[in-house]
Nucleic acid binder design. Sequence first.
DNA 1: TTAAATAAGTCAATATGGCTGACGTAAATT
DNA 2: AATTTACGTCAGCCATATTGACTTATTTAA
Lengths: 214, 214
Amino acid sequence: MADVNFKTANPPASPDGDATPLTRPELHPDEPVITPHCDLIELLFYAYRDFTSDPDERLAAFDFGRAHHRVLHFVDRNPGMMVTDLLAILRITKQSLGRVLKQLVDKDFILQKPGPLDRRQRLLYTTPTGHALARSLSSPQSERLSRALATLPPGSDDIVRQFLHAMIDEDARDAVAEMIYNTDRPARSLSAAAVAPTMALPEGADPDRNSDRK
Amino acid sequence: MADVNFKTANPPASPDGDATPLTRPELHPDEPVITPHCDLIELLFYAYRDFTSDPDERLAAFDFGRAHHRVLHFVDRNPGMMVTDLLAILRITKQSLGRVLKQLVDKDFILQKPGPLDRRQRLLYTTPTGHALARSLSSPQSERLSRALATLPPGSDDIVRQFLHAMIDEDARDAVAEMIYNTDRPARSLSAAAVAPTMALPEGADPDRNSDRK
DNA sequence: TTAAATAAGTCAATATGGCTGACGTAAATT
DNA sequence: AATTTACGTCAGCCATATTGACTTATTTAA
């Protein structure tokens, strides 16, 4: 199978009869021919597809999946974080997290320690093994980023950074930036509410009573 | 539940005893303190998390999931595409695609037509309904992109475009660009091999004989 | 013209990672 | 003392992916 073989398949891009003129029925005159930023939508899909595929093989060697990767990554980057914070970041339920977290703890990649101030908490840390795995998973991603940025004019890093930051939900943006860039952590904590804010529910008559979702 | 409440939880970022000094055992002197581009890795996660969450509610109204969205999107953008091409883009198996595709066809969002040149093909088209849904799904994503780009200096669009393009696997890059930007389609076809190229297997002794994967 | 490759579909079984709902327990807050 | 919070768990369900095997047309190549 050749490297780049264009197959010359379908000349008429019309589902109607072979001789029917090409007309999309529901195309209003004021409707733009293509969706604005359709290229970016697709580029984002492809970029993320390949970006996330990098660590997959290494993960499989430990019988882990992408869910484990995400947990391991954020715990490694935020040692001592609360389970609640992790839930807010990943936007999954306690039960979903529970499964993968248990496996990571059982296999000694993540360690849980009671919070010294609030003893209800089980603060999360990576073990040395876990830290090493987290590193080996993020390194191909980091290299991909380096290669990509190297092709761009100098100063593009910041444009990309700003772009991605601006793509985040407005309510979560500040908390995310806080989390990412506060590497000298001055007794700070993650704000679950800010990373994944609750809907502003009307006062009283709260339907969210016994829910797992924040 | 307050809007932005920082909880001031865990001052010591060390899993060891409360009074133990903070030292990561496996931190070689030549190991960088943080992974390069760790911020970008996380920004990409958050950006994509929120980017993909946009169409979810609309999707649920039709009992569809993200898999349906992806199929619908690419078929809408590439009318007359082959099933094989779709498999290569999505990087899933024929069986996985089969299910969602069948549902989309059954519910009259996608239409299959035998290829006029190669009658083995079942070329894919969106119906008017399908096209409308595809539009309504991509529009919030497009708006998010517009809002994000509006915050950046002029000319940033191209930087972002180039960045995302450079993030794609090198072998697939050209085919992707071809697919995205050839809106005036001159009897062209997608190249499945280029979008998701096969590993260059050694001649003879091909283990990939009866596989579903390209 | 026979053989092989390709496009597409299918059946069956399995795994992963999500979800809801219902409970329980310990600790902190009010 | 009552409530809220942090965390965990059991049970079941669903969506989406996987592998492997097999069939049917149809096209292409030996």
